[in-house]
Amino acid sequence: MSTTRRAGSETRTEILRVALELFTERGFEGTSIRDLAEALGMTKSSLYYHFAGKEAIIQALLASRRAEVEDLLEWLGTQEPGPDLLRRAALRWIDSTGPERILGMRFAHANGPTMSRLAAQGGNIRGWFDEVVGRILGPDAPMPSRLRARMAFDTVSAALFAAQGQPASEADILAAARAATIALTA
């Protein structure tokens, strides 16, 4: 097996990218450390140097998503409240969605049991948006308004579901999500 030398941060980034692809394609349970090492062109011991195992890789991926939500919360703290804040925030979230986040959503769709287990351990990505919605609408907003707000942030995931079996590109998915968010926040 030939191995490739990369800088430490580059190696971690590449491990996360390849792991996400394999976990989505083969399933979390169906992908072994050996599979990851082979796909990366490295030894298992090199992979273990960077991550203690598959669970640690998933935790790093979740930390990245959590950081994105924290960035959104930080941005919300700089915004003037108003009737258009939900739309601006949800569109900002969609506009910041790149291939890695879309792949992460595909992973979540393909690995329901793993996502349920992670949610029980504090990795509930959807639950993280409770704070976002609370900041936008306030603590006393009625439940239908809160649900509609959560839906506005979940349109990329909904568009991914709708695109299954369709020749839709990522641009098509994001365009549909954007249009749905605008409709939900009208």
Rank of each mutant, 00 (worst) to 15 (best):
L61N: 02
M115T: 11
G104A: 08
R178G: 07
G82A: 12
W93M: 05
G165A: 08
A159S: 14
T24L: 04
E38R: 14
L103C: 09
R106F: 08
A110T: 07
V132D: 06
L91D: 15
L72H: 03
E70L: 04
D154H: 02
I94M: 09
N124M: 03
Q164E: 15
I102R: 08
R150N: 05
A52I: 02
A177R: 03
M42T: 11
A63W: 03
V18E: 13
L76K: 06
D84I: 05
P144N: 12
L76R: 03
E25S: 09
R148M: 10
G82P: 05
R126V: 09
T97P: 04
R66P: 01
D71R: 10
Q59T: 10
T155G: 03
L174P: 07
A89F: 09
A168T: 09
E25T: 13
G41T: 06
T78I: 02
R178P: 07
D35H: 03
F161K: 07
K54Q: 08
L20I: 03
I182C: 13
L62D: 08
A175N: 15
L16C: 14
H109S: 07
A168C: 13
A179V: 07
G122D: 12
T43E: 15
A89P: 09
R146C: 01
S169A: 13
F51W: 12
L22I: 08
A186Y: 11
A89C: 13
I58D: 00
A159Y: 02
F51H: 10
N111Y: 07
A110Y: 00
L22A: 05
M143G: 03
T31Y: 03
R66W: 01
V69T: 10
L160I: 04
E131A: 05
A141G: 02
R117D: 02
M105V: 08
I182N: 09
S145Q: 15
I102L: 15
A162H: 11
G123T: 03
G138S: 08
L20Y: 09
D35S: 05
E29P: 01
A56T: 07
F153K: 01
L118A: 08
R66S: 04
L36Y: 05
L22D: 14
S64V: 04
N111G: 06
E38K: 12
L22P: 03
L174S: 11
T31W: 06
R146Q: 14
A180I: 02
R12G: 06
M105Y: 14
F107P: 01
L86S: 12
T185M: 09
A120N: 07
R101K: 14
E29G: 03
G122P: 10
E170D: 15
A63S: 14
E74A: 14
A110M: 05
F23Y: 11
A120S: 10
A177T: 10
F28T: 13
I57T: 02
Y48W: 07
T181M: 11
L47G: 02
D35W: 00
H50T: 04
A67V: 06
A110I: 05
T78P: 01
A152W: 05
T78H: 14
G27M: 07
A120Y: 05
L76I: 12
D172T: 03
T3M: 08
A108P: 03
F28K: 01
L85W: 14
T97L: 04
Y48V: 02
G127M: 09
Q164F: 01
T78W: 01
Q59F: 03
